[in-house]
Write a protein that binds this DNA or RNA. Sequence first.
DNA 1: CATGAATGAGCCTTCATTCAT
DNA 2: GATGAATGAAGGCTCATTCAT
Lengths: 193, 193, 193, 193
Amino acid sequence: MDANKRTRLLKAAVKVFARDGFFKAKVEEIARMANVATGTTYLYFENKDDLLISIFEEEMVPIIEASEKAVSEQKTAFDKIVAFITNHLHMVQESPDMAQLLEVELRQSSKFIHTYSGTKFKEYLDIIARIVAEGQKNGEFRSDIHPSIFKQMLFGAIDQICLNWTLSKSKKYDLEKSGEQIAAIMLNGISNR
Amino acid sequence: MDANKRTRLLKAAVKVFARDGFFKAKVEEIARMANVATGTTYLYFENKDDLLISIFEEEMVPIIEASEKAVSEQKTAFDKIVAFITNHLHMVQESPDMAQLLEVELRQSSKFIHTYSGTKFKEYLDIIARIVAEGQKNGEFRSDIHPSIFKQMLFGAIDQICLNWTLSKSKKYDLEKSGEQIAAIMLNGISNR
Amino acid sequence: MDANKRTRLLKAAVKVFARDGFFKAKVEEIARMANVATGTTYLYFENKDDLLISIFEEEMVPIIEASEKAVSEQKTAFDKIVAFITNHLHMVQESPDMAQLLEVELRQSSKFIHTYSGTKFKEYLDIIARIVAEGQKNGEFRSDIHPSIFKQMLFGAIDQICLNWTLSKSKKYDLEKSGEQIAAIMLNGISNR
Amino acid sequence: MDANKRTRLLKAAVKVFARDGFFKAKVEEIARMANVATGTTYLYFENKDDLLISIFEEEMVPIIEASEKAVSEQKTAFDKIVAFITNHLHMVQESPDMAQLLEVELRQSSKFIHTYSGTKFKEYLDIIARIVAEGQKNGEFRSDIHPSIFKQMLFGAIDQICLNWTLSKSKKYDLEKSGEQIAAIMLNGISNR
DNA sequence: CATGAATGAGCCTTCATTCAT
DNA sequence: GATGAATGAAGGCTCATTCAT
């Protein structure tokens, strides 16, 4: 097994799925972009579905790591939430293709690919949940908010903002500014002060 | 032209698109469920895309109206936001198929169907923006939050919670409870107190 | 039976068949152009094939009559052949749609519509055959040429020239000039001198 | 890519198009007759149109070559014209399917397939034009006849005779005899004597 | 392992024809 | 007779997947 070929296929798939959408994307096109033969794709992935799922599971790893690193560098739960948001927005800007997959294709997959459990995505959301629990423990955050509700709310809010930015062709408005507003609201919302 | 037939096709399409997803849904199946011949579909809709777009544009109308009605029955901006959230959650529970389309298929369409402007969806979001502006004017809400950021954040938060509820097979957890938490956070977040 | 409606359908069919070709032409389009409902077409014609056949059989009548008149006004077989050619070229210029049907669609029909005997077309060709027989009888033409071979040759030659003129977009070259050359060759070819 | 498969498809297409006509012919039937799967057709040809155009362009090559060879073996322009006619009639008898395509489908294609320039067919006609020019230069032929008019006339005459023979089920009459008459008329017609 | 030609099931869409009004 | 909405069979084309080399 050639790890390099597998990686190239994965990277190519991210690009093509982002550009064309999962359903309109052609396996042949992905293979071509990865500089391998069409059939080779099936040596590394079971089928087209598996390719998408593998992206979600594997490309999420560095994203999760970056997020955890950014978060761990902060002391307070407040700052950790800010770090999470900031890190996510950076990811969206620096890996726009992967970001689009998360924004646009992930939901389809969650619903229609029955073999997909979405472990890694849950793991990503749980970074938020953990910060919330921590903040509640140390008194920064109100304790009447369920962390697993908050994690979804925060992610949903960020995701919607990012989706909007992604789909806007001009991309003229500033994602950083939006990030500050997200932080302002969500933190004020959950703050114990 | 038979308005009834058109409606039946639209309703059938909502069901089939929700169940199978837009891409895997078959026009023939929609026609069968609407009790018309396959070709009849094309007397009322240009093509499969048009069917989906028509759903978004037309089925949103009563949803928008219900939301506006619910909102208008409240005095304060605070209560209006609560009404918006509550109304949305009701819609999700009472029209689960349409809700799923909004949660799962809308994004694809926004990105990949280039003829689609998404007017009605924007209209729905603008209900929130208007409440925010009103709340800022009368001092209920902080004025440093941009209404069009908040509308996306709130919708994103609600949407993510609902998506989660929709995709969870058991649907055992209470959507109402989640609604209260959404309101608690977002309102506290934007409150001027 | 409304003879007027039938005629309108026939005229419309000539236009649409000429413009779009028999196979790509839509019955609905013909009906629309004739200002009748789609279904009405089937009150006057058995089916799409019948519409085309009817054109060939009925629209040929005035063409045959005009040709016979033009021919009968000449004394010699020589002049009659010239008259036939001239008349045909005029028809092509004045009824370009019908001419195109004869040039482009007639052959398909002859081969693929098994119910079609092509009587009227044969009648048209026989005008030539009769002139030839007459010319052979009075010594103008060589007697070793079979009239039914000559009629096909002459028609084929004229037809190919006309087809070329029809398909050339600019139509800048002069059909009259070509007519003189056709006459020069074919008459010199069959002359007894 | 398997050149053999491509050839088989081309040969099968000639047969099926000749038998059923271009529009009624099914790609699936052509594939079946070529012993390949339906989709394979699209590896070698862009679409059904391309299949027909490819026939015209590629199957004309040996026909043109045979004609040029036959013509070049004759000394006088007179004999060359005879050779052209004779060769064409042989082709019609030996490749009746291809002949039928030229007689019946070529015109449709010239008119309705806008991507088709008809190069090879023009090349074939130009064999005649060249002989005419040669005959005019050496005094065999009258110089008042435009070669490009004569080429069309001669081809049209031959083509109509052949079409008639092709469409007559019995094929009892002798195509050779018709060939002699064509030569007699057209050569006498253009002769300088 | 790698290839890429071959496969063939599958689906959207068209349109001649019908028939209830 | 006239209408035109409805029908549904049919077919061109695509593309995920396979497999002989």
